[in-house]
Design a protein around this nucleic acid. Structure first.
Lengths: 229, 229
DNA sequence: CCAAAAGTGTTAAAACTACACCCATGA
DNA sequence: TCATGGGTGTAGTTTTAACACTTTTGG
């Protein structure tokens, strides 16, 4: 069954930059293409938007189909519409970025008979289409947004140590932070809560585990809290 | 001539929120629709993206056709893809916002035989489609962005007084600023330059005219300046 | 007992806030 | 000469940045 329109229409796709955090690195999930164009090249997960689904739904569906990732933080980034971004025809893509914590979401990468894998941000292969550009924008957005919105917590397990949190900011902002000042600031904002538990299976003194207190954060925001790391 | 595709495709449009600044108010340009749906209702300027033009080009073209505005600051906002945002069929729209200075750009509103007019942000008519939502997002974006990016200057004439600049921030941020502190801060950042000229035709002491120094701003940014009002 | 990371305060410098008066100009 | 906004400095407070040692735990 085919569809006919009076005027030519661009095809519409979504692409998703999925970030995760490692002991030492910010990672991105990429997929190896098994069809032309760019056959064999690595690309962002994504695909065509169906006419009866929203953009967000399309992004989640593609992510789930191609990487097995589900129920993750997802946010629209921008829409790329250069004329020649796809050699086949005019394709406009709505780019998203997503944040996952590696521990919680098993990397059951290749569900769709495709090859999916995590790559370190400093160790990226050449990418298909304009995906390198999209990835750069996503990285930049993450860097700026993480400073004034508590989205970083999405990259951590539900319970985390302050060192993990600090490490997250250090990796994303790409600079070292002072341990005492960082803890003072985070604890002073009162948006993380002690769980009463401590780390397990570490070969040194175990750190306290905290939890992000979204309820409190929302309350403080309403009162005009200026969250900033 | 018609176009046929294997799968149904959403229509793709652009819509633009054009902001301008008044002596006392933030204004938006709206257009009265002369066709269904929402015939007679006010709406954001915008229209269909042609298959051979980029999204930015489409936004500029529509703006020029419908409002006569040209060569203005334009930035992509987000893409709205709810299923029912247009009663006719599935339409995905890429929303933009634009900033103009009222003095420099004659409001030659209705070129396209349409009715175009400026509305104060506190005096808006009901809007067609989801345009109220888009406008709200644009307003919010302007408020947040203006604080850490010098886009506000786009709303002023090339030469402006510090009071105009302060007024701009007061209107957008919706709070009063202290005159001395504001001037200290702006002048301290060294991103505005005295022109040597002063205001004309005012019935009180004439203020000095300044100019935004983009060259210097870019230089300072590279050195890691944290611009913030 | 060693290695590894947890946890903890103080001080100096910088940034921010609040605040009031005289000056220049045109009507 | 009056009304209108232009232009200017200081002091108290808050925020930030720099900095080092003791504690706990497992191996």
């Amino acid at each position: 069954m085919s569809h006919t329109y009076e005027f030519a229409r661009p095809a519409l796709t979504v692409d998703v930059v999925v970030f995760a955090l490692d002991e030492d690195d910010l990672k991105v999930m990429l997929i190896q293409r098994d069809l032309p164009p760019y056959e064999g090249a690595w690309a962002l997960p994504g695909g065509f938007v169906r006419v009866e689904e929203t953009l967000d739904d399309a992004a989640r569906r593609e992510l789930s189909e191609e990487t097995g990732l589900r129920d993750i933080y997802l946010e629209q980034l921008y829409t790329a519409g250069q004329l020649d971004r796809d050699p086949r025809e005019r394709v406009v893509t709505v780019a998203y970025y997503a944040l996952v914590n590696l521990a919680g979401h098993a990397v059951q990468a290749s569900t769709d008979a495709r090859n999916a894998a995590w790559f370190g941000m400093n160790d990226l292969p050449p990418l298909a289409f304009d995906h390198e550009q999209i990835l750069k924008m996503a990285h930049e957005r993450l860097r700026t947004k993480v400073r004034y919105q508590p989205i970083g917590f999405e990259l951590l397990p539900e319970r985390f140590t302050l060192r993990q949190l600090q490490h997250l900011y250090e990796v994303i902002l790409d600079r070292e932070l002072d341990k005492r000042n960082f803890r003072k600031k985070v604890l002073g904002m009162e948006i993380v809560k002690e769980t009463g538990e401590i780390e397990k299976d570490v070969s040194h003194r175990a750190a306290r585990l905290y939890r992000f207190d979204k309820r409190k954060y929302d309350r403080l925001m309403k009162q005009g809290l200026h969250f900033e790391i």
